[in-house]
Write a protein that binds this DNA or RNA. Structure first.
Length: 186
DNA sequence: GCGACAG
DNA sequence: ATCTTGTCGC
């Protein structure tokens, strides 16, 4: 599976997208691919995909082989139009995908139990669109939602298994670190 | 009309 | 997202 993220430069359009392949069993980084380019669309809540998809697609295409699953920094079905960044990428690459966000966007939920692995439903307009998941005991939970070709239960299960000593699951966490350090070195 | 609003 | 050091705690 591959973790995806984009880091932007302060006063310019320059940005770096990173795709980091992580081994599910060991959580070790298996491969890294990056793409430096320009962001040609502003950040607008609900339209994040139009800003990040071009750069992320370029990074994924630089991997030696198509990944088995995409883990995005943001939302999937838990979106005002039920089609967030994770959905866009999944459909365009025809691969399973889902999103892990750090803050609330759409839907309501009750706080999941304090223990790692606990979760509660993310409900919007009367439907379950995602899950609020505790990846670490007594630590702020993350927001998980399916993107394409995968069910919510599997997304939640994977998120917990991919998280060790950090709140953010390893694939996305590594993608953040790589995109950030790559941008600084350019 | 007003506030909220992934990254 | 980004600007940013030290500090409290496991």
């Amino acid at each position: 599976m591959v973790g995806l993220d984009v880091t932007y430069e302060v006063g310019s359009a320059r940005a770096v997208a990173a795709a980091v392949v992580v081994d599910v069993a060991t959580l070790a980084v298996a491969e890294v691919a990056t793409f430096a380019g320009e962001s040609r669309f502003p950040y607008v809540p609900g339209l994040l995909a139009f800003r990040e998809v071009p750069l992320l697609l370029a990074a994924v295409e630089r991997l030696s082989a198509p990944p088995s699953l995409l883990i995005c920094d943001g939302y999937g079905l838990a979106h005002p139009r039920r089609f967030g960044l994770a959905c866009h990428l999944g459909v365009l690459l025809d691969l399973p995908s889902y999103g892990v966000a750090k803050t609330a966007f759409v839907g309501r939920s009750t706080d999941p139990a304090p223990a790692r692995g606990a979760s509660s439903a993310l409900v919007d307009e009367g439907e379950v669109v995602g899950s609020v998941v505790r990846t670490r005991t007594d630590v702020k939970p993350v927001f998980v939602s399916a993107g394409h070709r995968i069910g919510l239960a599997d997304c939640v299960d994977l998120t917990v298994r991919l998280s060790g000593r950090y709140r953010i699951p390893e694939p996305t966490r590594q993608a953040d670190i790589v995109s950030r350090s790559t941008l600084r070195s350019l």
